[in-house]
Every structure is written in structure tokens, then in C-alpha cells.
Design a protein around this nucleic acid. Sequence first.
DNA 1: AATTCTCATCGTATATTTACGATTGAATCG
DNA 2: CGATTCAATCGTAAATATACGATGAGAATT
Lengths: 109, 109
Amino acid sequence: MGVTKTQVFTDKQNRIADLAKALAHPARIAIIQHLLKEKSCVCGDLVEVLPLAQATVSQHLKELKNIGILHGEINPPRVCYCINETVWQEAKAIFGEIFETEITQQCCN
Amino acid sequence: MGVTKTQVFTDKQNRIADLAKALAHPARIAIIQHLLKEKSCVCGDLVEVLPLAQATVSQHLKELKNIGILHGEINPPRVCYCINETVWQEAKAIFGEIFETEITQQCCN
DNA sequence: AATTCTCATCGTATATTTACGATTGAATCG
DNA sequence: CGATTCAATCGTAAATATACGATGAGAATT
């Protein structure tokens, strides 16, 4: 995309947007769903589950790691991924806060 | 970005990703927050609130309209925007479902 | 009819995203 | 040591996103 003018928004707005961006791809949703459901969280398993090349899966994992949602643990010769509970709770709270708002106003009357 | 291979993912995974993508920019978060908080939802008000050009705001509004989160009501010479409660509830349910999952497994032990 | 107001759209420059093959790095196995 | 395995990274092509000035469309006002 182009350059997002992050500096003109609040830290919180930027954080919400970043967390949402991490969820803004079906492959990453699939990765998260898999990690929530299965015990196995080895990278190779994800490559089998997802119909994407290994390099692409690795790239998606990197994004999820960068935002903090996942962390990987090297367990040679494999790498085990799991959800970072702290960030997961943060995301849960942030989205929960947004959606808890009741839509009171009937706009445009 | 590149081409997302949407056809290899489930409809639900794609829908979640699309809704997340709508939230994946601080300007759109700011727009939604404003619409949740204020009564006024006229486009011009948003242009004043956001430190972005009118064309840019209009573009963000269009994206939120496309995904269904907002709808606009022409009220000459203004356009009044409001949150589409149906889609809002859908998003609330979808994200709620994801985050309600308990993280049981202590991965990589 | 001309002006003004509000907002959408066009055109465009630039940056980022997605995807994949190829390669590299690290560690185990034979 | 050489071969193999697993995963990250590199390099790259193509598509998409962001931002903004300029222009266009529609309606009310002067």
C-alpha cells in the first residue's frame, strides 16, 4: 500500500489497526484457527494444511510473529509455533472494547 | 499487495479476513470510533476530524461501505454516514467467536 | 444562469503485500 | 564428512493500498 500516516493517529488507533492487519488475510486466519484447535504447531504441519508454498507460509508466520500474536520456539530440526497469550488477550480486549459499543443513534434521521 | 488466493480458503476465513482488513487502517478505526461516539456522521465532519485530505477520507469511507460496515445516506448537499448494525453485529460475532477460544495447549513443551 | 457547497471519482506516484522458486543456515542422520 | 531435513531469507513479479490534487456530479442558493 502507500504510506500510512501513522504519526497523525493515536497509538491505540495504530495498534488496533496493526492487530487487525495481522488478521487481514485468510491464510493467517487459517494459521490462527489451526493453532487454536490443534496441539501440533510445527511449521511443517501448517505448510501441509495451507495450500501455499513453504516460503509463503513462513512469510505469514513472520508477520504474526512481528505483531506479537505468535512466537516460535526452535526445536531442531523443527520450529514450533504457538499463540502468545499476552498479545492474544490484548487483542481480545481491544476488539471487545470496540464491539461492546451499543449503536444507539439512528443516523441520518 | 499481491493476489490473495482467496479460492483456496473457506468463505468464512475470507470473510473474517475482509472484515479485519476493513479495520486494518488507523483512519478507518478513527472513522468508526467517531461514528460510534458522535451523533454527527456527516462526511465533512470526518474530514475535519481526520488529518487527511477529503479525497482520502472519501476513499476510506468507500472501503467501509464496500465491506458493509457503513452505509451512507444522501441528504443534499451532504452525505450522512452511519454504521450498519447488521454487519456490525456480524463482525462482533465473528471476532467474538475467534477470541472466545481458550488457549489450552502450552505449545512446544 | 452562475455560484457555491458537499462529496465522489479520476489520475497518479509511491510503498507495501502476496506469492513462489531458489538459496541459505542450522542441525541431525547415515 | 556428506546427505538430508526443516525452516528462514533472498530476489522478484505482479497486484493492491495509501495519499492527494484536480476534476466531476448533483443540489441548493444567489
